[in-house]
Every structure is written in structure tokens, then in C-alpha cells.
Design a protein around this nucleic acid. Structure first.
Lengths: 228, 228
DNA sequence: GCTTGTGAAGACCTTCACAGCA
DNA sequence: TGCTGTGAAGGTCTTCACAAGC
């Protein structure tokens, strides 16, 4: 019986602000975080056979103001037609291109405990173009096992495998106590994007992006509204 | 082999803005989402035997400016002493009180597929005071089974169980297609806080809080920075 | 001297409102 | 007429900077 999960603060997780040095021409990070949501809705509209949609209609589906959608898109180009709206297929294609979602990404997992195994068997990544092609552990009892079709490697092979398999993204599922150390190892391999399931916010060099998946934090911030 | 996961957009997180009608005296939602992080660091400081900490030092641990910490706390009260800083134990206690974390919360899970089972066996909730005390399914093949010590109930029993077991929080782990329907059922039972693992942003009445756990969105927003 | 708490300033993000165009 | 794209306005959040107090 295998399984898999995750979270988003935004949610959160939210993710940290992290607007390092913002050239006036830079796209705000919050805009970037909304684009995948736009794409998701556009995909479902495509499936429903919708050809054209206005910012008004799109906004209703996304629970966002039409002005926000138009403004967001205006940072990236001019995709609509006055008097008509946006061609669903064209807009989806353009946004995927901009986000780099028109290709596959190789991902590695560090930490193959209970949580790591759930991530390995989570079926939501591959259809979106994210494939976990390597998994690492320190526990000698786990190294060498084959889990979800993947041979678990010792952490020492990280550097070599990341290079050889052209891995750009790391997923961390190790205990809090070692998360920071793992983050450093990943960044030293040249990894620039990390999805962190450990309940700590690790420090990274400014050019590295981290997104934290932390359902406990999400619960803990909601209870405020239950008692107030 | 069971397992468990989650995410944080929020990141994350992130979560939707959702500043409905803000009295000038209301605590900003983004402040509320930071408090659990503060508490986490304070707890680890307590374990380390630290008695007093300044906003400067706390800020270093959290990667946040000292001014932000002081400002955040000032929305909630006056917890520090000039010239000294904050008493770690006192501040942690006060913040937990404010967030309603000085008590246990009963939680129900809807959806006991692969993902739901991972959530059921996730060991991170109970130590923080969140206990999944009921689980619901529509699939007749799963209803009646006992998983992680919990008898899986038919969805029809939701209302009665929520009332009887005093459940305040719902976790959703159903397919996207039915997530909105489940959200409505939960809100009709009086549930005011929902942790949503389905890859859709459901609509809720304004007094209901939702946090979305969505690692795919997190990955999809990071790739932008890998290609740009 | 050192650090908090907080008005004020500044940065950032969202919304408005309309010119421009189909 | 209908809708986009966008400067400008408005609002929210963050940072500054300093008075107050230990």
C-alpha cells in the first residue's frame, strides 16, 4: 500500500517574499506564482472545448479580479484581442512556454523514509512533466533497495548523478535536523530549485528558489480564525 | 508500507489573499501566517535553553528583518522588554494562545485513496495537536475498512460525526472533480477551516478559511526562474 | 548602551478607469 | 459595443528611524 502527499502555504506556502534586487522591469514573484493556476484553468477550458475567454470569465473561475489577470498578463506580453478576449489554446501555450513547462524536468529526491516513499509514488508529478529520476538516502539499510522502480543511491553519489542525469530540481524529505545540510549539498551541485517538505525554512543563496510544503503551518494559521 | 506528505505555497503558499472586509484594527493575514513559524523557532530555542532573544537574533534565524518581527508582534500585544528582548518561553506561550494552539483540534479527512491514506499515517499532525478522528469515503470497497486504526465511514455520516466528535477542521484528499462538492458539504456541516490537497482552488463562503497544499504548483512556479 | 514599539515613509501589489482597437 | 492593455490611484505590507524605557 503506497501513497503520496504534499502542501502549498503559500500556501503558503507560501514561500518567502524573496524579492532580491528588483529591476523595475522584473515580473513580480506573486505574478509568477499565479500563472500555473491560470494554466490549469485554461487546460480545463480546453478540455471543455472553449476557444476564447475574457478576463472577466477567467476571473470568475479563478476567483480573481479581471483587472488582475490583465495586469498579470501585461507583464509578460500581449495575448488578447480587444473586443474578443483570449484564445484559450494560444494563451495556455504561451504561458507554458514562459514558465518552462513545455519540456520535461528531471528531479531528484533526497530522503527515502516514510515521507520520501510517498513522494516517490505520488502520481501527480509525471503528467506535469516532472520526473523523479534519482533518490538518495544516508540510511545504509535503505540504500540499494529498489522503490517505485528506482534504485536508492547513497548520498555520496548526489553530485555525480545530478550532473550525469541533468537534474535541475531537488525535493527534500529528510528530518528537519539535516534539511539545511542537504540544501547546501544540493545548491553546491548547482541545483537552483528546491521543493522542501522538511518543517524548516532553509537558507539558500539568492539565486536558488525554495518552495516549502508544510501542512502543519497551514493548519496552525487557520486555527487563529477559529478562535477569533 | 504506509507514508505521508504535504506542501506550502506559502509557500506559499501560499493561500489566496482573501482580505475580505478589513477593519483597520484587524491583524493582517500575512502576519497570522508568519506566527506559526515564529513559534517553531521559539520552541527550538527553548529546547536549546535560550531564555531571552532580541528581534535581531530571531530575525536571523527566520530570515526576516527585525523590524518585521517587532511590527508583527505589535499587532498582537507588547511582549518584549526594552534593552533586553523577548522572553522565549513567555512569547511562545502567548503566541500559541493567540493562535489557539494551546489545545487539541479534532480533524476529519475526506477521501481515503492513496493520498488520503498517506495523510492518515502522517506522523506530523498529532504532536502539534491536530488529530484525525474520522475519515470518510464514497467508494463502497473502502468504507468499513480500518486504516491506521480508524474505521472508514460513508460520506453520509459526515454531518452526524462532525457534530458528535466536535470536529472543526476538514482535510480534503479527493479527486479534483469532486473537491468543490466536498467543500460545500463540509461548510454545510459548519466546518470553518479546510486543508485542501486536491489540485483545485475551491470556492468557500467568506468566513471559511482554506489552505491549499499543491506541490505541483510550487514546482511549476520555480521553473520560471530556471529558464529566465 | 541596548532593544522595543510605533508613527511615518517607502515599496510593492491590486484595482480603477479609460484610451484604443476589433 | 465589447474587451484588452495600461498609466494612475489606491491600498496593503515592509522598512525606517527614533522616542521611550529597561
Amino acid at each position: 500500500m503506497l501513497s503520496a502527499i504534499f502542501l502549498g502555504k503559500e500556501t503558503q506556502t507560501v514561500a518567502r517574499p524573496a524579492n532580491s534586487q528588483s529591476n523595475s522591469t522584473e515580473v513580480p514573484e506573486v505574478v509568477i506564482t499565479r500563472l500555473p493556476q491560470y494554466i490549469r484553468v485554461l487546460n480545463s477550458l480546453l478540455d471543455a472545448g472553449v476557444d476564447v475567454i475574457s478576463s472577466q470569465q477567467l476571473g470568475e473561475q479563478l476567483q480573481v479580479t479581471p483587472a488582475q489577470i490583465r495586469k498579470d498578463l501585461s507583464y509578460l506580453g500581449r495575448f488578447g484581442k480587444q473586443g474578443r478576449g483570449y484564445n484559450v489554446s494560444y494563451l495556455a501555450t504561451e504561458l507554458k512556454q514562459i514558465l518552462g513547462l513545455n519540456r520535461r524536468w528531471n528531479v531528484c529526491l533526497v530522503g527515502v523514509g516514510r515521507l520520501g516513499r510517498a513522494i516517490l509514488s505520488y502520481p501527480g508529478f509525471v503528467p506535469e512533466g516532472f520526473e523523479i529520476v534519482a533518490a538518495f538516502e544516508t540510511d545504509a539499510a535503505i540504500v540499494g533497495q529498489t522503490i517505485s522502480g528506482l534504485r536508492i543511491q547513497p548520498i555520496e553519489e548526489l553530485d555525480r548523478t545530478v550532473t550525469r542525469q541533468n537534474i535541475s530540481i531537488g525535493i527534500i524529505a529528510v528530518p528537519s535536523a539535516v534539511a539545511q545540510k542537504v540544501v547546501r549539498r544540493l545548491t553546491e551541485c548547482g541545483i537552483k530549485a528546491i521543493l522542501n517538505y522538511a518543517p524548516v525554512y532553509p537558507q539558500v543563496p539568492p539565486q536558488v528558489k525554495v518552495r516549502n510544503v508544510d501542512p502543519v503551518l497551514s493548519l496552525q494559521s487557520m486555527t487563529y480564525y477559529l478562535v477569533n
